[in-house]
Amino acid sequence: MLLPMIERFLRQHDMRPTRFGRDCARDPRLVFDLRQGREPGARLTRRVEHFMNTYRRSHGQ
């Protein structure tokens, strides 16, 4: 369920997948790997959700 949330976030904020991965997890391939079937662990999931929530708050959405 994490990937659909990320895809929606990318569209809403017009953000490139590489930038998202780099800013969120220091991994520019993160989104591409998730699209290819990578299964995120609980720690990465929490990190991604925290990044998206913080980004939304700081950008007024």
Rank of each mutant, 00 (worst) to 15 (best):
G60S: 03
Q61R: 14
Q61M: 14
R11C: 09
R16L: 00
D27R: 09
C24D: 01
M1R: 07
L44D: 07
C24T: 09
S58L: 13
F51K: 06
A25E: 06
Q61F: 11
H59Y: 08
F32C: 08
D33H: 13
F51T: 02
R16W: 00
P28R: 09
L10P: 01
E7A: 04
R38W: 10
G60C: 09
T54S: 05
M1P: 09
H50W: 10
Q36F: 06
E49D: 07
T18N: 10
M1I: 01
T54Q: 08
R38G: 11
R22L: 01
P40I: 12
G60W: 11
Q36H: 15
A42T: 15
L3E: 03
D14V: 11
H50D: 05
T18G: 00
A25Y: 14
D23Q: 13
L2V: 09
R47L: 13
A42S: 13
L34K: 12
G60D: 13
C24F: 03
M1L: 09
V48C: 08
L10V: 04
F51P: 01
G37A: 10
I6A: 08
R47F: 09
Q12M: 13
Q61T: 15
F20W: 00
R16D: 04
V48K: 00
L30I: 02
R46F: 06
L34M: 12
F51I: 02
R22M: 01
G37M: 10
L3T: 06
R35K: 15
R46D: 07
P28S: 07
H13K: 09
P28T: 08
G60Y: 08
G41F: 13
G60I: 00
M15K: 04
M1T: 07
R26Q: 14
R46T: 09
D23K: 14
D23R: 10
L34V: 10
E39A: 15
H50C: 05
E7V: 05
P40S: 03
D27E: 14
S58K: 10
M1V: 01
Y55M: 03
H50I: 02
H59G: 03
G60R: 07
D14A: 12
V31Q: 01
L2F: 02
A42W: 12
R22A: 01
I6E: 09
F32G: 13
V31P: 04
Q36M: 12
R35A: 05
Q61Y: 12
L3Q: 01
Q12V: 11
R16P: 05
G41W: 11
P40F: 11
T54M: 02
R11E: 15
Q61K: 14
Q12A: 15
L30F: 13
L30C: 07
E39H: 13
L34E: 02
H59T: 07
R35C: 06
C24G: 02
F20G: 02
G60P: 03
R26M: 11
A25C: 10
Q61P: 11
Q12P: 06
D23E: 09
C24N: 03
L10C: 05
D27H: 11
H13W: 00
E7K: 01
C24A: 00
G41T: 14
